[in-house]
Amino acid sequence: MYDKTYDMDKRKLLSALSHGSIFFSLLGISIGIPIAILFVSDDPVVKDNAKEALNFHLNVWLYGIIFGVLTLILIGFLLLGILQIVNVVVPILAILHCLSNTEQPYRYPFIFRLL
Rank of each mutant, 00 (worst) to 15 (best):
F23H: 10
F24Q: 07
S25Y: 03
S25M: 11
L27V: 08
S30R: 01
G32K: 05
G32T: 10
G32A: 14
I33E: 01
I35Y: 06
I35S: 07
A36I: 14
I37S: 09
I37P: 04
L38W: 14
L38M: 13
L38A: 09
F39Y: 12
S41K: 05
D42L: 06
D43H: 03
D43S: 03
P44T: 04
V45P: 03
V45I: 15
V46F: 00
V46R: 07
V46M: 07
K47L: 02
D48V: 06
A53R: 05
N55M: 08
N55F: 02
F56D: 01
F56G: 03
V60C: 05
V60P: 00
L62A: 15
Y63V: 11
G64A: 03
I65T: 11
F67Y: 13
F67D: 07
V69M: 04
L70A: 04
L70V: 08
T71R: 08
L72C: 14
I75C: 00
G76W: 07
F77C: 10
L79V: 11
L83A: 00
Q84W: 14
I85C: 07
V86H: 12
N87I: 12
N87G: 14
N87K: 12
N87D: 13
V88R: 11
V89Q: 03
V89P: 08
L93D: 02
